[in-house]
Design a binder for these strands. Sequence first.
DNA 1: GTGTTGACAATCA
DNA 2: CTGATTGCCAACA
Length: 105
Amino acid sequence: MATAERPVDDYSARVLDVVDAIPPGQVMSYGDVAEYLGSGGPRQVGRVMSTYGGGVAWWRVLHADGTPAPGHDSAALARYLQEGTPLRSARPPVRVDMRRARWKG
DNA sequence: GTGTTGACAATCA
DNA sequence: CTGATTGCCAACA
């Protein structure tokens, strides 16, 4: 086997897979991803994102109130404007219109 | 085994 | 909007 791809855990792999499946212009909250997986909780998803999130569209994963991750709100805003994500506030505090941008698998 | 912390969520003041 | 509080789950010292 020699398939030593990402030594990521099974749970982390699922989280990354879901995030990678989110289409542009759409977003999911940490709790939504956790619920989608049916295991763990929003905190586990957030922890996975902080560890392996660098390989996926982390900006498509935000808080339940539509605010992007900390330290990336500026970068995330640029992505939203580029992807055409429905924003409620186009300037800090950046807020995404979860009512429309919320994606379900 | 216990206590603290965390890219959370929801509610109340 | 800020702060406090509770619930949830896992990692870490």
